[in-house]
Computed example of a mutant assay.
Amino acid sequence: MYLTSNDLAILFPEKQGIEDYILFHTVSDQANVLQSKGLFIPLNNQEDKLIEAIANGAVAAIWEEGKSLPPYTPNHFPVFFTLDLAEAVKQLLQLYLDYLNGEKNHNMDITNFKFSNKKLLNKNNETYDIAVMVNQIADSKRNNSERRG
């Protein structure tokens, strides 16, 4: 199951660019990695690297609201706006994990998340490693269900 542009439109209703249905094979904060059909999220002030992300396969971006897009950004390039990029990543991962929790097909295609933003991780004492986040969210859900009970 791939993350789609329709999923992003639900989370981030402020957007610009073409509103085609896009399947994202990759989500990354790294402009310099290959990101086939990628969604680029410029964490840690990497807005100036959008052109590199596009050259490496990014087909859309999540952008901090209020920050200018580079003048070279194609008019048709889908951009979804948010007030907080780190929070956007959390929402995106939570949505995707919810989708995966409902899937029964173990041989499905999945979106590849590539995050290596060590400065942001150190600053927030959090992780964006999908495997670690899955465990944290699962633990959180278990704790919440125990309290309801």
Rank of each mutant, 00 (worst) to 15 (best):
M1C: 03
L3P: 02
T4L: 03
D7L: 01
D7S: 00
A9H: 03
I10A: 05
L11H: 02
L11Q: 01
P13H: 08
K15S: 13
I18Q: 13
Y21F: 15
Y21E: 13
Y21K: 12
Y21W: 07
I22W: 00
I22C: 02
L23E: 15
L23Q: 15
L23I: 08
F24N: 05
F24L: 09
H25V: 05
H25M: 12
V27K: 01
V27W: 01
V27G: 03
D29G: 08
D29W: 12
Q30Y: 03
N32D: 14
L34K: 11
L34R: 10
L39M: 06
I41L: 05
I41K: 02
P42S: 09
L43W: 05
E47T: 08
D48V: 06
K49S: 10
K49E: 11
I51V: 10
E52A: 13
E52Q: 15
E52M: 13
A55M: 05
A55T: 09
G57P: 02
V59E: 10
A60M: 04
E64H: 09
E64T: 11
E65W: 00
G66S: 07
K67I: 08
S68A: 15
L69R: 05
P70K: 07
P70Y: 05
Y72W: 03
P74F: 05
P74A: 04
N75E: 07
F77C: 06
F77V: 01
P78A: 08
P78S: 06
P78H: 07
V79I: 15
V79M: 03
F80Y: 15
F81Q: 00
F81C: 00
L85Q: 04
E87Y: 09
E87R: 12
A88C: 01
K90M: 04
K90A: 04
Q91F: 05
Q94A: 14
Q94S: 12
Q94L: 13
L95E: 04
Y96I: 01
L97H: 14
L97E: 06
D98W: 00
Y99F: 09
N101C: 08
N101E: 15
G102M: 11
G102H: 09
K104H: 10
H106L: 14
N107S: 09
M108C: 10
M108N: 10
I110L: 14
I110K: 14
T111M: 07
T111R: 06
N112V: 09
N112L: 14
F113M: 11
K114Y: 06
K114Q: 12
K114W: 00
F115H: 10
S116F: 06
S116D: 14
N117K: 07
K118Y: 09
L121G: 04
N122L: 12
N122S: 09
K123R: 12
E126N: 03
E126A: 09
Y128G: 00
Y128R: 04
D129K: 11
A131D: 14
V132W: 03
V132K: 15
M133C: 06
M133R: 15
V134E: 07
I137H: 08
I137C: 00
A138L: 11
A138K: 13
A138G: 01
A138Q: 10
S140I: 05
R142F: 13
N143D: 12
N143G: 00
S145T: 12
E146C: 06
R148F: 13
R148P: 00
R148I: 14
G149H: 07
